[in-house]
Design a protein around this nucleic acid. Sequence first.
DNA 1: CCCTTTGAGTCAGCAGTCAC
DNA 2: GTGACTGCTGACTCAAAGGG
Length: 279
Amino acid sequence: MAAIFHYNPDRPFRASPELYLCYWGKEACAPLHSFGPGVRDVYKIHFVHEGKGIVRVEDGETLTLTAGQAFIAYPERVVFYQADAAQPWVYSWIAFCGDQAGEILARTRATPEQPVFPMDTRLMPKLYELLNEAEENTATRDLRLRALLYEFFSVMVEQAPVSAPGRAAVQVQAKDAYVHRCLDFLHSHYGEEISVGQLAAIVGLDRKYLSAIFKQATGYPPQRYLLQYRMERACGLLKTGRFAIGEVARSVGYQDALLFSKMFKKTIGVPPSAYRDNL
DNA sequence: CCCTTTGAGTCAGCAGTCAC
DNA sequence: GTGACTGCTGACTCAAAGGG
């Protein structure tokens, strides 16, 4: 089966505040068929119907998926996935966007670092059929597609909810509080010079201990996370096509555009100018 | 010719790991 | 949480290419 794509023609030009289905599809992949490492500009959930394959988010662990499992590619996160050589997967996908998407996903077990979650084997095939049916009636298409998407998420939250905190989770929560404070700080000060030492001083922890719990929670050491975050922001600025490389560099915390160029290429794989021009 | 960008080399000091 | 060690990051410099 070749890949079957369905695009939602009602997709808004500007970012939608509401949840919005962008496209969906299905494919029986060829052996070793792969995507990436690359980034998407929308959320994309893949559900494995049969066969198997692997998925890796940024420099994280490589995870194997089989039938009945799903994974989500988050926007602006580098993801790589590949069908198995012997038993290539058959999967279907839905891609969506909207400000609500993040809030809804936060109610599920899926996170950018742990993008794999179980899913009822009947849910996705059924959704795929219903989406195709809904597509045919142009008078109700936009409402029906949206309704189906909300319904899908209600089941997903039900089947893969955020784990309820147990006794052991209390200590984890205390650690998480430190990590969340760090993340808040990094997300609001990434345009400034930040050292791990400063970060540790802000939350009142030893630098090395902070590095350890930060990596435990996010999968990355603080320095690496900050670098990744800066480059994601830089990608966003470059996409607008309105800024010089030097302006983008200074905007994300690099006073030296030369150094920024180097780090950008190292992280994203292409120089900033090439990234901008490709868009 | 000027500006922007990239590449390569060097090195001080910072960050991560390990053992405790 | 912390001390010691080590690897690596990032600042700095110079050279060069490409486009206007």
